[in-house]
Design a binder for these strands. Structure first.
Lengths: 231, 231
DNA sequence: CCAAAAGTGTTTCACGTACACCCATGC
DNA sequence: GCATGGGTGTACGTGAAACACTTTTGG
């Protein structure tokens, strides 16, 4: 029996695609999967796939990340929805793009369903991508660059405990410009959202730096008082 | 004959919805239409409707605006895509929300297909809306409030020629805080993106103010040199 | 002449920016 | 002892914020 008031015209297919960012060796990276199916079989592409009728968009994005890259519990935010005609050779496909931030190294990345393999690539040196995924990556980089300056999401790309230099290099990689060490420290410590731990870096061939944690609860308390994070 | 590699599982329906902003009598307004069809027949709702398989999302949004409110050639930007389960009583519907900025008064607003009537409402005093449209409006207001501060889109809500006071009141309405007259003028004129016309306000019961225009070309030239608009 | 909004400068303070040296550690 | 990054303070200039009175016009 048909659903009352429903409409039965042909409808576009709906997918989700995820731009997964990581930060490693001083460089901003993106996680790509090698397609195991046509079209674009063998090409590198963003992890993603069709949205099921019984799951939300966010759930679909998380499911695809789990299935294709074994990532879970990561920072995930909707980016943009692309519905250009002809972007998929099969038929009309509208995709809801997401971007994710993951601390590289904490998560084992492995391919599974629908993807032959998964690997990290430098944002500045990507292979040719399937569909219009290069444009989606570009949009995600722009969004990240804009957002990282006034929302404390950069920490999602670092391990729980990090040094101030790591944080600075992260910002330098995303913003693509050098930052002054003393000013950066003054500013970030002055915001009062980092807590100093008793630990220091291990296994480095020079003086070990102090480790800090981002204090999410403190940040939220400050925001309620009108505080604005800004680098 | 089936399209090769296509997928045939059940798929969500796809719609677009538009939050149309206007500025009138010192207040930020939203354009709503009264639904002519079930579900929510008679309720106020955002103009919008189903996306056709042969049109892009932007085209669908513009078509719906034309059909339901007779608006055309307006500023339109994608806002967010909502795919929560159960947001439409009929079946699974994913909607791509847009927001539009129009100079109230320049465009005749009239209802047509699928909408009994269209009318402006103060953002701060909306009726109960169909579906989850109240949440969409809220998200659009947040986006507008965030974006208006660093992108010169406020001008889209004013006629081509406007006074500095009108512009200031617009910002005050969107940002919901008073601005200092002298500082506001100093700042906006200092940016060098407004051009003074030879004209002044007409039919006002007090000293007539000078009219200005936003110089889009000049703005883009400045941006290329590293300039950032910021209120 | 009164009401209403237009138009106009200066001072103060906070913050962004530029900049260089000593320290601790591992090898 | 040397190479490598860790860690620290000050001076300067720009820009944000606070603030009040005179001018013009219409009624």
């Amino acid at each position: 029996m048909p659903v009352p008031y429903s409409y039965t015209y042909p409808r576009p297919a709906l997918t989700v695609d995820c731009v997964v960012f990581g930060f490693d060796e001083g460089e901003l990276k993106v996680l790509l999967v090698q397609r195991d199916l046509e079209p674009f079989k063998g090409s590198w592409a963003l992890p993603g796939g069709f949205v099921r009728v019984d799951e939300s968009l966010d759930d679909a994005a998380r499911r695809e990340l789990r299935e294709e890259t074994a990532l879970r519990d990561v920072f995930l935010e909707q980016l943009y929805t692309i519905g250009t005609l002809g972007r998929d050779p099969r038929e009309r496909v509208v995709t809801v793009a997401y971007y994710a931030l993951v601390p590289v190294g904490l998560h084992e990345v492995k391919a599974s369903t629908d993807a032959a393999s998964a690997a990290w690539f430098c944002v500045s040196d990507l292979p040719t991508l399937a569909f219009d995924h290069d444009a989606i990556v570009e949009k995600a980089v722009e969004r990240l660059r804009g957002k990282v300056r006034y929302v404390p999401i950069g920490f999602e790309l670092l391990p729980e405990k990090f040094t101030l230099s790591q944080l600075q290099h992260l910002y330098e990689a995303i913003l693509e410009r050098p930052l002054d060490k003393r000013n950066f420290r003054k500013k970030i410590l002055g915001m009062d959202v980092l807590v100093e731990t008793n630990e220091i870096e291990q296994d480095v061939a020079h003086r070990a730096a102090r480790l800090y944690r981002f204090d999410e609860a403190k940040y939220r308390r400050l925001v309620r008082k009108g505080f604005n994070f800004e680098i």
